[in-house]
Design a binder for these strands. Sequence first.
DNA 1: TTAAAACCTCAAGCTAGGTTGAGGTAAAGG
DNA 2: CCTTTACCTCAACCTAGCTTGAGGTTTTAA
Lengths: 154, 154
Amino acid sequence: MMLEEARLTVGKVAKRSGVKVSTLHFYEDKGLIRSWRNNGNQRRYKPEVLRRISVIKAAQKMGVSLSEIKSAFASLPNNRTPTTEDWDLLASKWRKALNERIAYMEKLRDYLTGCIGCGCLSMNSCPLYNKDDELAAEGTGAVILEKTAAQNSV
Amino acid sequence: MMLEEARLTVGKVAKRSGVKVSTLHFYEDKGLIRSWRNNGNQRRYKPEVLRRISVIKAAQKMGVSLSEIKSAFASLPNNRTPTTEDWDLLASKWRKALNERIAYMEKLRDYLTGCIGCGCLSMNSCPLYNKDDELAAEGTGAVILEKTAAQNSV
DNA sequence: TTAAAACCTCAAGCTAGGTTGAGGTAAAGG
DNA sequence: CCTTTACCTCAACCTAGCTTGAGGTTTTAA
């Protein structure tokens, strides 16, 4: 038996979660969230979708892509919305990646500090510019972080 | 008088710098590098373009966007290729941003650690999901880093 | 001298993560 | 009941940072 409050409209989900309706459609297309339809073909959501969205947003802040989030969800039993225990698992995995990402940036920063004033900025000798990317190579295999730093917007 | 080695073809620049020819065209379109043409309308570069590319790549690794790199170059006298002193200035500016970015991620990681097992992942109470984004709000105004973490690729 | 390799321009395509708008239907409030 | 607000689909558009391809020219090396 589904209570009134247990069936959220897309507008309410948007309002409560702070994401746009179009984003919810988008996430649904991408298989990140689910809904069913009422008689009038309008989307209805279980409240747990809010939790799912919160996980998506948290993961995004950590630099996890939507497709990775999707497969993380898919790896859970029944593709369910993460329980607390599920969240523990996902979070510690992502936290690991986050640590690696931080470590990468710290290395970069340190090289950078070393380079200030050294005038070494030549292709051959400067560790900041290196085809083989020492920094990445030293990494611990953080696949999801490989293309990280080059992707900011203005 | 320009020596032979002082006039690099696009192919040679590509080879030495490790970026594709198409990328060099792209950077030129964007105003990040410059070239002149020979009689046959082919691009020729001064060797300093390599240094410029190395600065571009280093900046990208720090999360600086091409348009920001462009304006950084534009801020230099004569829009010149960064000298060692110029590099000092740019690098310390970007290093500052990098530090802020690292600090942001560390905060995120720490919240995440706190959240593991706490089951707090609700829209209202979890600091990981917060419309007003406490983490960002606590920041030091790192404009270029605002949209950072949400932009990974697969 | 001639063939291959390198170069040219311009347009279109790609990934990620969405947003916008047109044209039409459903639900809610007074 | 009737108007307004919310919702629907589908396609097109957007930024960033490039890559690919078509069709044509120039340079280089045997």
